[in-house]
């Protein structure tokens, strides 16, 4: 192996030593390299240079992070705590915004679910036919949904199969809408929903989703975690200005 090839190994081995200055070259774990260093003065010199450089780096780094804060450091911290009226927040404070957000999400999901357009009236639902001969069935506990798999599939090819608990008859009619036209369809739906089909607004190019979904956005959604946040700013009930 040539000296040039050893050079990169020297850089690796030298960087692996720490502290660089305190390791003798005969402690090199790379036996092949150690043997070469013993025989080749040029590489040994390179190794020593590299180690000296790393020693300087270590010293430089150490001096960058050496020293202590001034003696009045703690006093400054205490006085700033007092001045700014800081108090430890209760341990669960960090969880409150998360909990509030989760709660808001639950409310949102609830609102979206409840606020959906009405389905076909209950009476028009197809009631499963009375079991033909229940006594003949060996497993009486079999759910009535089982025969539903045989219901004729009216869904367009590629759509997901009817959801559990939904018969083909009581599902909303599904329409395949080309991607680009979805917003327009939503506007039409929206206008119908509000009972005012306004031709001009239907022609408008882009409409923010918030407007498209307008009937679904209810005031309950505005539950704000900020109120709770402010409550816990000092770990005390709002209005208490007690300093520590």
């Amino acid at each position: 192996m040539s000296c040039e090839q050893y050079k990169s190994r020297i850089a690796v081995v030298a960087a692996a030593f720490r502290p660089a200055s305190s390791t003798p070259s005969n402690a090199v774990p790379d036996l092949d390299l150690a043997a070469h260093l013993a025989a080749c003065p040029a590489c040994r010199a390179e190794f020593d240079t590299q180690r000296a450089l790393l020693a300087s780096i270590d010293r430089g780094l150490a001096s960058m992070v050496a020293g202590k804060p001034a003696g009045d450091f703690a006093a400054h911290v205490r006085s700033r705590i007092a001045q700014e009226g800081i108090a430890p927040r209760p341990w669960f404070a960090g969880w409150l915004p998360v909990t509030a957000a989760a709660l808001a999400l639950v409310v949102l999901v609830g609102v979206l679910t409840i606020g959906r357009p009405p389905r076909l009236p209950q009476s028009t639902r197809v009631t499963p036919p009375a079991p033909v001969a229940p006594a003949e069935k060996p497993h009486a506990t079999a759910p009535p949904e089982v025969p539903r798999t045989e219901a004729p599939t009216t869904v367009a090819a590629g759509r997901r199969p009817p959801r559990e608990g939904q018969s083909a008859a009581n599902r909303e009619p599904e329409v395949l809408v080309p991607r680009g036209e979805m917003a327009a369809v939503m506007r039409l739906f929206n206008a119908n929903w509000e009972g005012k089909a306004d031709g001009a607004s239907l022609m408008a190019a882009a409409m923010p989703t918030t407007e498209i979904l307008k009937p679904l956005a209810t005031p309950e959604l505005k539950i704000s975690p900020l109120e709770i946040e402010r409550l816990d700013e000092k770990g005390k009930p709002k209005g208490s200005s007690e300093n520590r």
């Binding site: 960058m64 020293g67 400054h76 800081i86 430890p88 960090g94």
Partner: peptide, 26 residues
């Protein structure tokens, strides 16, 4: 200090960190 390389700034930042630590000390 390792980041700022200035003692006054380092002390100020360290104090600020302790203020935040106190707020979250629970």
């Amino acid at each position: 200090l390792g980041v700022l390389r200035n003692r006054d700034d380092a002390e100020d930042v360290a104090q600020e960190a302790f203020l935040r630590a106190f707020r979250n000390f629970s």
